[in-house]
Write a protein that binds this DNA or RNA. Structure first.
Lengths: 147, 147
DNA sequence: ATAAATGCAAATCTTTTGCCATCTC
DNA sequence: GAGATGGCAAAAGATTTGCATTTAT
């Protein structure tokens, strides 16, 4: 992680200039908090980290910038489905097609994909129970109105 | 879907008896709303469906029962990470280990898994962009305190 | 100087909780 | 009849928005 921070920060600066996004102190510190961890933090956790360097920062600023960074492709959401709980009464083994735009979820039979399996032992003695595969893309409806 | 509803309802009744969960009218209607769709509804959407049959139902009841059903293994959450946004500044191709108990997320190099790929064309002209794989299970810390 | 970002507070949305009346077994 | 559930309202948690002030370019 450490060795990838510097190039990430440079890429971040470049991208901000490219997009005409003012390079504020807050932005730099927020992005650094994100780029220097592999803990997949929540916005709240980022806020707590940033607070140590900028005690006056507001949680709203953290949220606004996370949004901008995601839009700019500088970071990703671990799951696109965090906005609300999505339920599935189908207990058979299957995968999901998830539309990146409208967040619709469609079933995909498990044999539509090449078998998902570990090639190595999982790190940190993680006990594997099952695989959850989201196939991300655009549903036909959203593809038709893509801008 | 239609042809699987009856057995699902029977399984539901059996499981409720097994667990000593009273079979209330509300429960039956809520579960039926879930078992008769493949739209992966939100709790709010389930509430709207159930409301048509039981106008007096409360959203809190829908939430409470969804929780019970999930605990009983009668349904699943499409993603375990819906409680809060989780961020990832690592744009390299990789997968995630997600702990079902504490929701911690750990990186897994992309070559730790057999290549993920479609064996058939996606249904409904869905445009595939990428795959998001969550390896679900228990992290070492949670496995140690498993009850 | 201009346009955009920050900070704060209030608003909104999602989910949970407490409590009493009601229902299942 | 005992114990769990349903409904309602309030609370808690997560995220967004409006607006006046400050900042980057």
């Amino acid at each position: 992680m450490r060795d990838t921070l510097a190039p990430r920060m440079q890429n971040f600066r470049d991208r901000c200039v490219e997009l005409g996004m003012p390079l504020t102190h807050q932005r730099l510190v927020i992005y650094e908090a994100l780029a220097s961890t592999d803990e997949h933090p929540t916005p709240e956790a980022v806020f707590e980290r940033v607070r140590k360097k900028i005690p006056s920062i507001s949680l709203a600023t953290v949220y606004k910038n996370i949004r901008s960074f995601a839009d700019a492709g500088l970071l990703r959401e671990v799951s696109l489905l965090h906005e609300s709980l999505r339920l599935d009464a189908n207990l058979a083994d299957h995968h999901h097609l998830v539309c990146e735009r409208c967040k619709s979820v469609t079933d995909l039979p498990h044999d539509a994909l090449a078998p998902v399996r570990m090639k190595i032992n999982p790190p940190d003695r993680f006990q594997v129970h099952r695989f959850n595969v989201e196939v991300l893309g655009l549903c036909a409806r959203c593809a038709a109105t893509d801008s």
